[in-house]
Computed example of a mutant assay.
Amino acid sequence: MNEDNFADELTAFVEMFNTGTLILLVASILVLWLINWCIRYFMERIMMRFPTRRFFIMQLSTLMSFTLYIVGGVVLVVGVLRPPQEFMIAVGGSAAVAFGFALKDVAASLVSGLILLFDRPFQVGDRVSFENVYGEIMAITLRTVRLRTLDDNIVTIPNSRFITDVVASGNLGAMDMMVVTEFHLALDADIQEAEDIVRQVIVTSRYAYLKKPVTFSIEEVQVAERLSIRLRAKAYVLDVNYEKAFQSDITRRASSLFRERGILRPLR
């Protein structure tokens, strides 16, 4: 009796993957991929037209991709393969155990991806620091997060890593972000004048977001075995894409004014 049941289940399994079903399955997968490509292309065109809303558009694109693949996968299995109920029950138990061990890391990343989507410790478009990697979140997929560093490298990180490890978001969905720029001065330098110079440089920068305050912190630090004054300027850039341009602009112009006005720097 058991042998007869096994033969019937095997026959049902073979019938599921006949030539017509396989062609329909491949065609359906290609259609899913094409729809997802069209969604991303359409969203990129919208972002070019409305750059100030690009974070919302990128997040909407990610959500639509999630929904498309999840719903599409279920429809393919149920609507195209149409496995009999007896076969699903018989195979499901053993397959669950086998795939559970083989794909536990993938499953953890899939679940973590859903947690990231709704808990939102960071969003697509954010500048984040994770371990020794810093850059912009380009995409949150079902399994991984893709991050572009400031050197234009794409770093792929499993979703599960973000659930257990510490991650810092610099802007959390906002267009503006704080940028900290450091200057080192000699111990006998005129600190107040140096601060006034840096403030002047910041407020006249085309990249500065002046609706938020410009602040400073001053402390003694050791540089090359010598004591010096570290002046840290904390200001906001109007768009995270201009982070390094803003920092470079401040550093270049402030350093030039330091030389012109005789602001002493640490000796080598």
Rank of each mutant, 00 (worst) to 15 (best):
M1Q: 09
N5Y: 04
F6K: 15
A7K: 14
T11P: 00
T11A: 08
T21Y: 01
S28T: 13
I29R: 02
V31P: 00
N36I: 05
R40F: 01
R40A: 10
F42Y: 08
I46Q: 12
I46Y: 04
M48F: 05
R49Y: 07
R49A: 11
R54L: 07
R54E: 10
F55K: 15
L63F: 12
T67V: 15
G73M: 13
R82F: 00
P84H: 07
P84F: 02
E86R: 13
G92T: 06
G93L: 12
G93H: 04
S94M: 13
A95Q: 08
V97C: 08
F99V: 06
A108R: 13
V111T: 08
S112G: 03
G113A: 08
L114E: 05
L114H: 03
L116T: 07
L116K: 07
F118A: 07
R120K: 15
Q123L: 12
D126R: 10
D126C: 09
V128C: 06
N132L: 03
Y134N: 10
M138R: 10
M138V: 08
M138F: 01
I140S: 01
T141K: 06
T141D: 11
T144Y: 07
R146E: 14
T149D: 07
N153A: 14
V167M: 12
V179G: 06
V180D: 12
T181I: 10
L187T: 11
D190T: 02
D190L: 02
D190G: 02
E193A: 13
E195D: 07
V201Q: 04
T204Q: 13
R206P: 02
Y209I: 02
L210M: 14
P213F: 12
P213T: 13
T215S: 15
F216N: 03
E219V: 03
Q222G: 04
V223P: 00
L227E: 11
R230C: 09
R230H: 04
L231D: 05
L231R: 04
A233K: 01
A233E: 04
A235P: 01
D239Y: 01
D239H: 07
D239T: 02
V240Y: 02
N241G: 15
K244G: 01
A254P: 00
S255F: 03
S255I: 03
L257I: 04
L257T: 01
R259Q: 15
R259D: 15
E260F: 08
G262R: 10
L264F: 00
L264N: 06
R265S: 08
